[in-house]
Simulated assay, not measured.
Amino acid sequence: MIPFTGFPAGKTRFTPLPDLFFTALLPAIDDLAELKLTLYMFWLLNRQRGYPRYMTQAELEAESLLLTSLQRGYEGNPLVILRKAVEKAVARGSLLRVTISDESQRTDYLFLNTPQGRKAVEQVKSGELVLETKGYVHEAPVERESPGIFELYEQNIGLLQPLLAEELAEAESTYPASWIVDAFRIAAEHNVRNWRYIKSILERWQRDGKDDEGPLTDRGRRRRRIP
């Protein structure tokens, strides 16, 4: 282990991170390489100026600091580890990828999933924004993971208060993910944006069953209804 001497006194540069990173994204990431990559992308793009802000896959693979970081705690080629981390981040939705290819080359462009990143991706796809590589623009299909309960809360209700985090985590471990998504959707459709309403929906489904599904047992296992 290399000891860290601490942050120096005086003027120091900072990299801003949105609160949603800590309340929704950080609890969901279960791979250290993906976490390192995500943080590194925030740092890299914050140092860029202008619009759009992105990194190509080739540029990332030339980042010696990132590759050195990925070597610690892992066995194998750091480039392979990095590529797997990129795939996980794209599948999760924290990174957006646009691939531009022509007869001679293929370039993967990576953006953070921020309002600016989403805008840039849409402009590239529509032809309004042209990047360095010209050619056919396409996005590789990825299977998105369902949003976690913390992300759903902040998207539909507002800023998550720390006192509520434990209760949300308990609900996430108790109810199926599809139930949680549906409960938030129903609350939004009825314009009732508070956790108590959503919690009451989940508790009713647990007790009486949801649609044609049976209720949940105390251990969270679904019982079949007897015809």
Rank of each mutant, 00 (worst) to 15 (best):
L39A: 06
L67H: 09
D212G: 01
K125S: 13
E59I: 01
G6N: 04
G158T: 13
L163I: 11
V181P: 02
E167K: 13
I186Q: 13
L163Y: 12
R118T: 13
T12P: 00
D31H: 11
P52K: 09
L26C: 00
D212A: 01
P52Q: 02
F21Y: 15
Y136H: 14
F42C: 05
K119R: 13
Q161C: 00
R219Q: 11
G50H: 08
R144N: 04
I157N: 02
T174M: 04
L152E: 06
K199E: 14
T23R: 09
T38I: 03
M1V: 12
P52N: 03
S173E: 15
G117T: 09
W43N: 11
E103C: 08
E172T: 04
W43T: 14
D102R: 11
N156D: 06
L164D: 13
S173F: 00
P227H: 09
G50S: 10
R223D: 01
R225A: 08
Q57S: 14
Q57E: 14
V86M: 15
L65Y: 07
S178R: 12
E145P: 00
A28Y: 04
I201Q: 12
P176D: 06
I2P: 01
K11Q: 15
K88I: 10
N191C: 06
P78W: 12
L79K: 13
L95D: 02
S104G: 04
L131A: 05
Y74F: 14
T12D: 02
K88F: 01
E213M: 09
P18M: 02
I81T: 14
V130C: 01
D30M: 01
T12V: 15
D208R: 12
D208F: 13
P27Y: 11
L17D: 05
L60A: 03
V192M: 12
A28I: 04
R193G: 03
R221F: 10
I180D: 03
W179M: 08
A169W: 01
Q57F: 06
N77Q: 07
Q155K: 14
K84T: 11
G50R: 07
L79F: 11
M55A: 14
G117W: 09
E145F: 06
P176R: 06
E87T: 02
S94W: 09
I29A: 03
V98E: 11
Y153T: 08
R204S: 12
V124G: 05
R83D: 06
